[in-house]
Design a protein around this nucleic acid. Structure first.
Lengths: 168, 168
DNA sequence: CAGTGATTTCACAAACTTGTGAAGTTAAGG
DNA sequence: CCTTAACTTCACAAGTTTGTGAAATCACTG
């Protein structure tokens, strides 16, 4: 219950102007990196909101899109755990929330992606023979991803420490 | 000049069958992760070739696509440094090569991506005010990416060691 | 348990992407 | 300097994605 009252989600200071600029630019980068446009915009809008939480209607109004579009995008975001859906008690509308660290962890959990790459590579090694030159290349690539996967975990551990020191 | 002679790029053992299965599956994962289909397929095909190098014609034949498609995809792959273009002296066709470690480093150089995210975030912090709650959220996110960026470098350093021990 | 506001689903239209064939460009080799 | 193989570019057609409006569903509140 940090900022309640006004109902608008943007700051008095910088203004909706600045929010919109950030949202579109940051979303554009996420899109470039492979994310769908609408989830990217919605996520950026949440990041740039003071409370870190917006309702479906607010999102639709701010981004000029239909409720349907919000619905679909938000489903994706919750599935990949970048955003949480919360029902405000006493109201019948949902709020969507970026929960601090939650989403770094989600980003990190792109090691679900890594895992699938590894499966494909393992099958490849088996199919091509681990003694063939191609098989060996695949095996080395596989080893690389396995290595990365291990490293990511300890990296996140270090981040948590770093974060605690600087932000809490 | 490792494997010369036959002209075919697939192994005798596993067979073109196994290569194709790997190529399509691995490419599908890359696509899922945001890569365009054709570059993904071509890259996978190179990975799964014994010599790690194929000509434009070989790629076209193996993947059943036009020279135009190969041309475009290969331009992308060379731009992001996952593949090198080499002209075989004495011939007039180019070979495209996956150079061992080169492409891990390229994957890693997705920190070009990180850098662009950071730019967008810095602009956001400035625009929204670094004292506003939203500005602080963006600042923390920025700090996260800066942290990651630093970690990636040392992680790759450790990988090189690990690799040297196990594969050379 | 009816009324109402919020959210979701679905069929479809617009916009964008992707790969093709054909013409154009480059440069090796006679 | 002409021939020819290899590669690239371009306009376009097929296919896919994306967001919409309208209808349906859901679940609070009275």
């Amino acid at each position: 219950m940090t900022t309640q009252g006004t109902g608008t989600a943007t700051e008095g200071a910088g203004g909706a102007e600045a929010v919109s600029r950030f949202v579109e630019r940051f979303a554009a980068q996420l899109v470039e990196a492979g994310m769908q446009r609408m989830p990217a915009r919605i996520f950026a809008a949440l990041l740039a909101s003071d409370s870190g939480a917006l309702t479906s209607a607010e999102l639709g109004a701010q981004l000029q899109v239909s409720p349907a579009a919000v619905s679909g995008a938000v489903r994706y975001l919750t599935q990949v755990n970048m955003v949480t859906r919360e029902r405000e008690p006493g109201s019948r509308r949902d709020r969507f929330v970026v929960h601090g660290n939650q989403w770094y962890e989600a980003l990190t959990n792109r090691d679900a992606v890594l895992k699938r790459w590894e499966v494909a590579l393992r099958e490849g090694v088996a199919g091509l023979g681990e003694d063939s030159p191609a098989g060996q290349r695949l095996a080395e690539t596989l080893a690389f991803f396995e290595f990365i996967e291990g490293e990511v975990a300890s990296m996140m551990e270090r981040w948590r420490v770093h974060r605690a020191e600087h932000f809490e």
